[in-house]
Write a protein that binds this DNA or RNA. Structure first.
Lengths: 208, 208
DNA sequence: CTTTTATAATGAACACCGTTCATTATTTAT
DNA sequence: ATAAATAATGAACGGTGTTCATTATAAAAG
């Protein structure tokens, strides 16, 4: 059987990616295996390797899609409201990130599952998708810093991003001690942003 | 063959754990498999299951050991120097965390690899080991807050912890855009701590 | 000093996994 | 109608965690 042409190469690629997405959503990253995937699309396992070089490459494509969705959320007007203060927008952005993590849990967790080939270098196109996310935050911080403080602004953006992610990640994976009965992400994120923004202008930054 | 008594049950348990530790250190979490482990200690794979209920349980024990080591570092006098300011000690603690992450990379990464049975609840004894880490930071923050601000202090500790971890994690896993050529963890951690400490007293905190 | 009982250790077997590649079936070109 | 090209296959390889009837040994009983 060859060139069944049920699907063109491109169609097949999309089909595989779409089914991968569904499998991860339903059963988590563990649910995405070559055999299950082949079964679900009505092809043999080997066929997948005619389209993707490895399952890892496919995982990466799923992650890429997740990053695109996340970027869509963080670049949305919901947290770039000109009528609101930068701090308000930042708080909103933190909430959006947290909501994304909860709503898209298996996809979001997959972004940080690091059992992959270990130390492999991230490819530029993938790094670009990551960098975009930080840009969304830099846009909110830019007005607060002068032109000569670009480096400081970029550092602030990285710090706020990493901090928000840290809060979200530790909480979502049960690695944060409970404070009261409930999750306190929102109040902690708000406290973080308020505090950091107050201090970030007067605090010094080490020279490059 | 039974009751070879080469080792008592306890000895065998220690032997397995010790060898697991070495395997993870040498080849990462992937290197710790039932067969390799059995081979390394001179027993059959089935024997491991007479001592540990599953490989996951063993992974958890390795993580427990890592957490103990980390606690030893963060509770050390190096970052609890009475002659230094709380901020200085906090900065030192952040550096110690980062050094730990680098020096014990495979163990440290394993703490956050979340391919485990997914949503399994963390057992209390394990949660306790996590909570201890936060306590080390609370000790540094305590003098800065009044008795009535205990909740606020605990929130500040969780925020600073999560933020530092976030910085470290994103950087170590290549998910942080490069700022200059080099890693900027130290200067970012310092900037974070300086800024947050400046603002954390005046910034409001949502009521419970 | 047997003989029985209890049990520690085994390792083949099961159902999975990612991946390879010679083979096959089908389409396209001659 | 034949030949060349190629899409799809699926058995096979070497791995994984886990189970459990079997076996070999140590302890207890006779």
């Amino acid at each position: 059987m060859a060139r069944r042409k049920d699907h063109t190469r491109e169609e097949l690629k999309n089909l595989i990616l779409e089914m991968s997405w569904r499998l991860v959503g339903k059963e988590g990253p563990q649910g995405l295996t070559a055999r299950r995937l082949a079964d679900a699309i009505g092809y043999a396992p080997g066929t997948i390797y005619n389209v993707f070089p490895s399952m890892d490459a496919l995982y990466l494509q799923v992650n890429a899609r997740t990053l695109d969705l996340l970027h869509g959320v963080l670049a949305s007007p919901a947290c770039h409201d000109a009528k609101k203060t930068p701090v308000q927008n930042m708080k909103k952005m933190a909430q959006l990130y947290r909501s994304f993590a909860q709503d898209m849990r298996p996809y979001w967790l997959m972004l940080f599952s690091h059992d992959l080939p270990e130390t492999r270098e991230v490819e530029p196109w993938y790094q670009e998708k990551i960098d975009r996310l930080f840009t969304s935050l830099e846009i909110l911080l830019a007005p607060t810093f002068s032109g000569k403080q670009q480096r400081k602004m970029k550092m602030a953006a990285r710090i706020l991003w990493a901090s928000t992610h840290g809060l979200c990640f530790l909480e979502e994976t049960g690695k944060m001690p409970k404070l009261d009965g409930e999750s306190a992400f929102e109040s902690m994120a708000n406290y973080l942003i308020d505090s950091f923004v107050i201090g970030m202008k007067t605090a010094p930054v080490a020279q490059e």
